[in-house]
């Protein structure tokens, strides 16, 4: 064995434990879950009788799945609106805060800390606190935001928040408090990313543009925004995959809600599997979740890796 070859082997051997562990715990388990999703397992005792895609049909066809299909459709819509609005809030507010903080602000460190600290908390903590803030109370004894509105004499704005069943088309308004809570937690993340991006843009570039007669707004629109685009993409992927698989926050804050107004696949999967003991059905839901996440993440991983090889 040549020297270099031996070392390559050693390198591989060092990686081997991790490769084996992840091979089993990620890929092996995913395959296992897929197998469960194609089985008849309904109840505590495993039953691997092959039923093909029946559990998936039940999720997507109302005629076969009945209420499961209805619930899943609502879940997908909820996930869609939650993701879109959550991303918009995080990217919009995060970028705004980063740009503001980039203006040579006194006390920047304090502001940064304040915007970013929710990131260090658990989704469970966030869920509990925001549940308290948005729980509507009763008409005679309002609480949370409703109590605040009452104190300010704005009773007409009192609302049932996450217990409301109102909707605009397929968008359930009860999702709004949940989105606020999620955005509160994650906006600091996009802010930090943008701030790092802004700091990475050499001052000479901006100066040069200004010399060319560009206004501050133009500098941002023509020079800075385009340079922040890769950061936006990264933020969208990271936050997007979090929102597609969100569970802890909503489970703690609201649960599925009346008429599934705040239900998401993560909660559906958890309840179906561990409360209803419909293991095969739960596995099918989780596989759909996995596919949704993979759709977002795999292209990103592939391009990232390619970009690196080219470098």
């Amino acid at each position: 064995m040549s020297h270099a070859r031996k070392e390559r082997w050693t390198a591989f051997l060092i990686l081997l434990p991790s490769i084996i562990l992840l091979g089993i715990f990620v890929y092996g388990f995913i395959a296992w879950t897929m197998r469960v999703s194609l089985s008849k397992w309904d109840g505590i005792t495993p039953d691997y009788t092959w039923v093909g895609f029946e559990n998936f049909h039940r999720l997507f066809s109302k005629d076969i799945g009945g209420v499961a299909a209805i619930r899943f459709r609502i879940d997908l819509w909820n996930t869609f609106f939650f993701t879109v609005l959550f991303l918009l809030a995080c990217v919009g507010v995060g970028m705004l805060l980063a740009i503001l903080l980039d203006q040579r602000i006194r006390g920047e460190g304090v502001f940064r800390t304040v915007y970013l600290f929710p990131m260090s908390l658990s989704f469970v903590v966030t869920g509990v606190v925001w549940q308290w803030i948005f729980s509507p109370g009763t008409a005679s004894r309002p609480r949370g935001v409703n109590a605040l509105l009452g104190m300010m004499g704005l009773e007409q704005l009192q609302w049932r928040w996450f217990t409301s069943t109102e909707s605009i088309g397929p968008f359930h308004l009860a999702l709004i408090p949940v989105i606020v809570a999620a955005a509160w937690q994650m906006t600091g993340y996009t802010m930090a990313m943008y701030l790092a991006g802004l700091r990475g843009i050499p001052e000479e570039l901006r100066e040069a543009a200004r010399v060319d007669g560009a206004t501050e707004t133009q500098v941002y629109r023509r020079i800075i925004m385009p340079m922040l685009r890769p950061i936006t993409l990264s933020a969208l992927i990271v936050l997007g995959h979090i929102s597609l698989k969100i569970f802890d926050l909503i489970y703690t804050m609201t649960g599925k809600g009346p008429g599934f107004v705040t239900d998401v696949p993560g909660i559906f999967m958890f309840e179906t599997t561990f409360q209803g003991n419909h293991y095969a059905q739960g596995a099918a839901i989780s596989i759909v979740m996995l596919l949704m996440v993979a759709l977002v993440v795999v292209p990103y991983l592939v391009t990232s890796m390619r970009g690196e090889v080219e470098r």
Partner: peptide, 14 residues
Amino acid sequence: FGMFIPYQSILIPL
């Protein structure tokens, strides 16, 4: 990829 997967998809075998 292992850090992006929804952990629900490995929970039953796990």
